[in-house]
Design a binder for these strands. Structure first.
Length: 805
RNA sequence: GCGGGUGUGGCGGAAUUGGCAGACGCGCUAGAUUUAGGAUCUAGUGUCUUCGACGUGGGGGUUCAAGUCCCUCCACCCGCACCA
């Protein structure tokens, strides 16, 4: 008989909600455990089967930790600002707030139907003014400390979306959302000075328990690079310009210099003869999109300016070129070119027939650039030194002569923080008619987003808020000075940078969270979400957290101690699930047909949590079959404890299997290896079916082990065993190491590394005994006939290997 | 191109420090049971030329012993991509 999942799941879902079973208490003296999910964007499409994968993983940890006696914080909320709601509103004329509210209702219902043990009293929503009040407050603090500033920067303007996108939201020259073309356009934008934290963001990665791949991605993203700035004079002019190089040791090999097309000095230095050519080239480059500029990378282009730089180390005159392989946004926007020892410079020098002077011995610069290290040549006082020594000596020389200095640069750029959108947190700044600017006073927060049914882009690049005159115009009540509110809003990342703090104290009207409570709960012990947030969300959140740490708001340097990335669930055809491919699995349907417990079990059993695995309907059926087997084993047709389960059983046949199961399940769950933990539970059930009777202690222990994965079913079985209290806080089973070892163990006997026989021996049998017994075996003697035993390796408890020929 | 990762039966995947490859599940085969079943139970299931041999992407090596360590090549996935 199979269990009635619809009845059981509804019963326990309501029980947990009505009794607030999973409410966490910040004032206990239990040890804390904070298990965090990446909160979802509540899209109109509803929950995807990918969501429950990570949520089940964290739920298993949360439920296990509760049973192990921890006070567990396990919250859920909504990352509800964002473009889709705004786009929907534009398309349909509906209110994004209403649309978002409905989506949240759907998500909450779906998540609750899956039986996750969230404390719903801590639910947060980034679009709630009581929440974004604090998002705005953090912005004001950043502004106060000079970390938020306005800059005129070339931005990724997307005409179709009517907004500016961050670099990372542009993929292959198109918008990440919608795939619309993106162009460069200079605009005044709010920037956050994340680069001020570059070193700390890099260094503190060391102490985090994160996947190495994610740490690496963050390291690459930050892109720290040590070298020197070198100041070059310009022949015939007073001006100088600066280049950044990681190889100051090759300064004697510089044969030309290059400025990025946007370099401000070009206009000034260009010679009359070259003026037209340079202007044409720059115009050409500007017409190219970023995509074209990088795509055409294979063929170098550039033009001579007619001007010459003076190499500070030897007074050599070097032609100054303009080329788009030099980027204005990195270093100082100009380089010294050492074609003998840099592949890009080499390629350029070959194409434009510029001299190539080797200064490091080792390669063949007739054929290619040599980027390795070796003794220096043609380099005056650096001759004979190896690369490392020469770098140090070159920098020392530059510093001593005022021609340059040691310098660290980063690939990381400041964070473009404004968006020309309606559905985001308003930036709490007022621009006054006299050209000054001031922050909205803290006591006036939250600065609420005005209601409107006019959310079309203004088209000028301003957000739709610019159209709402009542809201935009302000008058200083004291001076009568007129002003205009900032019309840009914050990007979606803003709310998700600190949401895990608000869960800790979600109703606090006076602070984003109480400091003592933050001390109790931080950092998040386990944080699980998709790998797509490897750099953006995780880097931005770390940045804000470090800032909040610096101003004394949070007690820890890092927000997320242990991070894990769940993999993707693919469609049955092994492709990414998508509406267009028609391979989307809807969790609601699975919950109806197989039940939430089955879905949870199946998603955890599919494979390792971090792997991308294809959905399988057969596999899902198998998961359900296992739960049915468990149910039938323990519960009778009329819902009572099965007669096979015996309270005072003296049957010890299941002892070893039970203790092994407790051990493996506990360890595997702890390490997020749910697939192997579940397989061990299956082994136990297979054994239990073979046993004559099952001691009730083992049956109850098993139900506890199963409960984090299949909580509804486990509660029901627990109740049928005669318990009236929820299983959620019962103590987690312990195992006895002594019960794991048997007196007799089977060892394999190998001849020349191949298993030829097996025998049962006492677990304490010594090497000598093993060897002796193995050699006496008849079947082994057959194998040894005509051979001489050269050596015998005996590993107690494992095997004996006889080397003979 | 650079960085990271993965490669094991028909399929998803297991295998502490190198120590019996293929746990567990799916699928498949046979039997039992059933009015019947896509239900349940039992047994079997890596390949082959089956008292044996061969098997963890290919090739080589270290070792008594290699999925695991070393070298090399191949394929696929993810991230970055003229970062000086």
């Amino acid at each position: 008989m199979s269990f009635d999942h619809q009845r059981i799941e509804e019963k326990w879902r309501n029980y947990w909600l009505d009794n607030k079973t999973f409410k966490s208490d910040s004032d206990t003296n239990k040890d804390k455990y904070y298990v965090l999910d990446m909160f979802p964007y509540p899209s109109g499409a509803g929950l995807h089967v990918g969501h429950p994968e990570g949520y089940t993983a964290t739920d298993i940890i949360a439920r296990m930790k509760r049973m192990q006696g921890y006070e567990v914080l396990h919250p859920m909320g909504w990352d509800a600002f964002g473009l889709p709601a705004e786009q929907y509103a534009l398309d349909t004329g509906n209110d994004p707030e209403e649309f978002t509210r409905q989506n949240i209702e759907t998500f909450r219902r779906q998540i609750q139907e899956l039986g996750f043990s969230y404390d719903w009293d801590r639910e947060i929503n980034t679009t709630d003014p009581n929440y974004y009040k604090w998002t705005q407050w953090i912005f004001l603090k950043l502004y106060e400390k000079g970390l938020a500033y306005i800059d005129e920067v070339p931005v990724n303007w997307c005409p179709a979306l009517g907004t500016v996108l961050a670099n990372e939201e542009v993929i292959d020259g198109k918008s990440e959302r919608g795939g619309h073309p993106v162009e460069r356009r200079p605009m005044k934008q709010w920037m956050l000075k994340i680069t001020a934290y570059a070193d700390r963001l890099l260094e503190d990665l060391e102490e985090l328990d994160w996947p190495e791949s994610i740490k690496d991605m963050q390291r690459n993203w930050i892109g720290r690079s040590e070298g020197a700035e070198v100041h070059f004079g310009i022949d015939g002019l007073e001006d100088t310009f600066t280049v950044f190089t990681t190889r100051p040791d090759t300064l004697f090999g510089a044969t030309y210099t290059v400025m990025a097309p946007e370099h401000p000095l070009i206009d000034k230095i260009v010679s009359t003869e070259q003026q037209q050519k340079v202007a044409d080239y720059i115009k050409d480059v500007q017409a190219k999109s970023d995509l074209e500029r990088t795509d055409l990378a294979k063929e170098k282009s550039g033009v001579f300016t007619g001007a010459y730089a003076v190499n500070p180390i030897n007074r050599e005159k070097l032609p100054i070129w303009v080329a788009d392989y030099v980027l204005m946004s990195y270093g100082s926007g100009a380089i010294m070119a050492v074609p003998a020892h840099d592949e890009r410079d080499y390629e350029f020098a070959v194409k434009f027939e510029l001299p190539i002077i080797p200064v490091v011995e080792g390669g063949n610069t007739e054929k290619e650039a040599f980027t390795g290290s070796g003794p220096h040549i043609n380099s005056a006082f650096l001759d004979g030194l190896d690369t490392q020594e020469a770098i140090v000596k070159a920098i020392d020389w530059l510093e001593a002569h005022g021609k340059g200095e040691r310098k660290v640069t980063y690939r990381l750029r400041d964070w473009l923080f404004s968006r020309q959108r309606y559905w985001g947190e308003p930036i709490p700044i007022i621009h006054w008619e006299d050209g000054t600017m001031s922050a909205v006073r803290e006591e006036d927060l939250p600065l609420e987003l005005p209601k409107t049914n006019e959310i079309k882009p203004s088209g000028t690049g301003e957000s739709p808020l610019a159209n709402i005159e009542d809201w935009v115009s302000v008058v200083d009540p004291e001076t009568g000075k007129k002003g205009r509110r900032e019309t840009n809003t914050m990007p979606q990342w803003a709310g998700s940078c600190w949401y895990f703090l608000r869960y800790i104290d979600p109703q606090n009207p006076d602070a984003l969270a109480d400091y003592e409570r933050l001390e109790k709960w931080l950092p998040a012990d386990t944080y699980i979400g998709g790998a797509e947030h490897a750099v953006l969300h995780l880097l931005y959140a770390r940045f804000w957290h470090k800032f909040l740490y610096d101003i004394g708001v949070v007690p820890t340097k890092e927000p997320f101690q242990k991070l894990y990335n769940q993999g993707m669930i693919l469609g049955e055809n092994n492709e990414k699930m998508s509406k267009s491919k028609g391979n989307v699995v809807n969790p609601d349907e699975i919950v109806a047909s197989h039940g939430a417990d089955t879905l949870r079990l199946y998603e955890m059993f599919m494979g390792p949590l971090d792997a991308a695995v294809a959905w399988s309907t057969n596999g899902l059926d198998g998961a359900r079959r296992f739960l049915d087997r468990v149910w039938r084993l323990f519960v009778t047709e009329d819902g009572k404890m099965s007669g096979k389960v015996v309270a005072d059983s003296s049957d010890t046949s299941l002892e070893k299997a039970y203790h092994e199961t407790v051990k493996k399940v506990t360890e595997n769950f702890e390490a997020l290896r749910f697939n192997t933990g579940i397989s061990q539970m299956m082994v136990f059930i297979n054994e239990a079916y073979k046993a004559k009777e099952i001691p009730q202690l083992f049956a109850e222990g098993f139900v506890k082990l199963l409960s984090p994965v299949a909580p509804h079913l486990a509660e029901e079985i627990w109740e049928s065993f005669g318990h009236s209290e929820t299983l959620a806080y019962q103590s987690w089973p312990a195992f006895d190491e002594a019960k794991l070892v048997e007196d007799e163990v089977e060892v394999a006997i190998q001849v020349m590394g191949k298993v030829r026989a097996k025998m049962m021996v006492s677990k304490d049998a010594s090497k000598d005994e093993l060897e002796k017994q193995a050699l006496e075996l008849e079947s082994i003697q057959d194998w040894l006939e005509g051979k001489t035993v050269r050596k015998v390796i005996a590993v107690p408890g494992k095997l004996v290997n006889i080397v003979a020929n």
